[in-house]
Simulated assay, not measured.
Amino acid sequence: MRILITGASGTIGRFLSRHLASEGHHVTALGRTPPDGAALDFARFDLFGAPPRLPDADALVHCAFNHVPGKFRGGEGDDPDRFRTLNVAGTGALFRAAKDTGCRKVVFLSSRAVYGDARRGETLRETDDPQPDSLYGEVKLDGERSLEALCDGQFCGVALRVTGVYGMPPGLTTHKWTGLFEGFRSGAETEPRCGSEVHGEDLAAAVSLVLRTAKHGFEVFNVSDLLLDRRDLLTLVSECSGLAGALPARAASRPGVMDTSKLRRLGWQPGGRDKLKAFVDACNAAT
Score class of each variant (00 low, 15 high):
residue 223 V to Q: 00
residue 223 V to D: 00
residue 223 V to C: 00
residue 224 S to V: 02
residue 224 S to N: 01
residue 224 S to T: 06
residue 224 S to A: 08
residue 224 S to I: 02
residue 225 D to M: 02
residue 225 D to C: 00
residue 226 L to Q: 03
residue 226 L to M: 09
residue 226 L to R: 03
residue 226 L to G: 01
residue 226 L to K: 02
residue 227 L to C: 08
residue 227 L to R: 07
residue 227 L to E: 11
residue 227 L to F: 04
residue 227 L to T: 12
residue 228 L to V: 07
residue 228 L to D: 04
residue 228 L to K: 05
residue 229 D to S: 07
residue 229 D to K: 07
residue 229 D to M: 08
residue 230 R to I: 14
residue 230 R to Q: 15
residue 230 R to C: 11
residue 231 R to K: 10
residue 231 R to V: 09
residue 231 R to E: 13
residue 231 R to F: 03
residue 232 D to G: 06
residue 232 D to S: 10
residue 232 D to N: 13
residue 232 D to E: 13
residue 232 D to C: 12
residue 232 D to R: 11
residue 233 L to R: 13
residue 233 L to D: 06
residue 233 L to I: 12
residue 234 L to G: 12
residue 235 T to F: 02
residue 235 T to P: 08
residue 235 T to E: 14
residue 235 T to R: 14
residue 236 L to K: 10
residue 236 L to R: 15
residue 236 L to I: 09
residue 236 L to D: 08
residue 237 V to T: 03
residue 237 V to N: 04
residue 237 V to G: 06
residue 238 S to V: 05
residue 238 S to F: 03
residue 239 E to D: 14
residue 239 E to C: 09
residue 239 E to L: 12
residue 239 E to Q: 15
residue 239 E to T: 05
residue 240 C to N: 05
residue 240 C to L: 12
residue 240 C to V: 10
residue 240 C to Y: 04
residue 240 C to I: 01
residue 240 C to S: 12
residue 241 S to R: 08
residue 241 S to C: 15
residue 241 S to Y: 09
residue 242 G to Y: 13
residue 242 G to Q: 05
residue 242 G to P: 13
residue 242 G to D: 03
residue 242 G to I: 05
residue 242 G to R: 05
residue 242 G to K: 04
residue 243 L to R: 03
residue 243 L to K: 04
residue 243 L to E: 09
residue 243 L to N: 04
residue 243 L to Q: 07
residue 244 A to H: 10
residue 244 A to E: 13
residue 244 A to P: 08
residue 245 G to W: 00
residue 245 G to R: 00
residue 245 G to T: 02
residue 245 G to S: 02
residue 245 G to I: 01
residue 245 G to D: 01
residue 246 A to N: 14
residue 246 A to I: 11
residue 246 A to F: 06
residue 247 L to A: 05
residue 247 L to N: 06
residue 247 L to I: 12
residue 247 L to G: 07
residue 248 P to W: 00
residue 248 P to G: 01
residue 248 P to R: 00
residue 249 A to C: 04
residue 249 A to E: 12
residue 249 A to I: 06
residue 250 R to L: 08
residue 250 R to F: 10
residue 250 R to N: 08
residue 251 A to M: 09
residue 251 A to S: 15
residue 251 A to Y: 09
residue 251 A to I: 15
residue 252 A to R: 15
residue 252 A to Q: 07
residue 252 A to E: 14
residue 252 A to I: 06
residue 253 S to V: 15
residue 253 S to C: 13
residue 253 S to Q: 14
residue 253 S to M: 07
residue 254 R to I: 14
residue 254 R to N: 10
residue 254 R to P: 10
residue 254 R to K: 13
residue 254 R to S: 14
residue 255 P to C: 01
residue 255 P to E: 04
residue 255 P to R: 06
residue 256 G to Y: 05
residue 256 G to F: 12
residue 257 V to A: 03
residue 257 V to N: 03
residue 257 V to G: 07
residue 257 V to S: 12
residue 257 V to P: 07
residue 258 M to G: 01
residue 258 M to V: 05
residue 258 M to W: 01
residue 258 M to C: 06
residue 259 D to N: 14
residue 259 D to I: 06
residue 259 D to Q: 08
residue 259 D to P: 08
